[in-house]
Write a protein that binds this DNA or RNA. Structure first.
Length: 211
DNA sequence: ATCCCGAGGG
DNA sequence: CCCTCTGGAT
């Protein structure tokens, strides 16, 4: 009887917890709105680069009201180096305007409401819910979680939402974000997209893709 | 499926 | 040059 997918997922989680005991969200922020904005900025961009633009961004526009009323071109200039800067500026501003108008200036704390914000889909919503509010609503599936889940044989799906549905039943709900955050760490350091370092990978013995 | 888009690595 | 980075909207 081969190891079930669930046993495998738990094994992976255990190893990753030992490997990265202190792993946490690597975006810098001081409030739920700031985390939301930083997460929108992190699309197709390293967190390191996001953290280079957010200090000045948040110094000038610290909260939802300030961001909602910000001059669009100023916003675009401040976030330009993160890429997709026009869309991101529009989405940040649109999301903040809705937060001010419909949510009393506070970031909503449910998946359903977060998905109403411009530029926010499940990945961004999961990050905000988990790290700003301590709510495990789902598994954050970004490019790293997608790649490693596929390589490790936890899913064959390519659509992030489908991958999330494959992963959720494999893990205890309380560990959903623990899994994501550590998979991301491992993806950055060892299981890289281009040249995975299988020699140094602690998961290689259970990885069907190991070289 | 395609577009948005800059920066860094190989 | 090409690929990748905590995606989302059309």
């Amino acid at each position: 009887m081969k190891t079930s997918k669930k046993q495998k997922a738990l094994k992976i989680l255990t190893i990753l917890k030992e490997l990265y005991p202190d792993a946490t969200c690597s975006l810098t922020y001081d409030s739920p709105v700031q985390l939301l904005v930083a997460t929108i900025l992190s699309a197709q961009c390293t967190d390191e680069r996001v953290n280079k633009v957010t200090p000045e961004l948040f110094a000038r526009f610290p909260d939802a009201i300030a961001l909602a009323n910000a001059d669009r071109e100023t916003l675009e200039t401040l976030i330009r180096s993160t890429g997709f800067y026009r869309n991101k500026a529009k989405n940040i501003q649109g999301a903040c305007q809705k937060i001010v108008k419909d949510f009393n200036g506070k970031v909503p704390q449910t998946m359903e409401e977060l998905l109403l914000l411009s530029g926010v889909a499940r990945k961004t919503a999961n990050v905000v819910l988990a790290h700003a509010f301590g709510i495990n609503a789902g598994v954050t599936v970004d490019t790293h979680v997608k790649r490693l889940s596929q390589r490790l044989g936890l899913t064959k799906a390519t659509d992030p939402v489908k991958i999330e549905k494959d992963l959720m039943p494999l893990l205890p709900q309380k560990d959903w974000e623990n899994f994501s955050i550590r998979i991301i760490y491992h993806g950055r350091q060892i299981c890289k997209a281009r040249k995975p370092n299988c020699q140094d990978c602690q998961l290689a013995f259970l990885c069907p893709s190991s070289l």
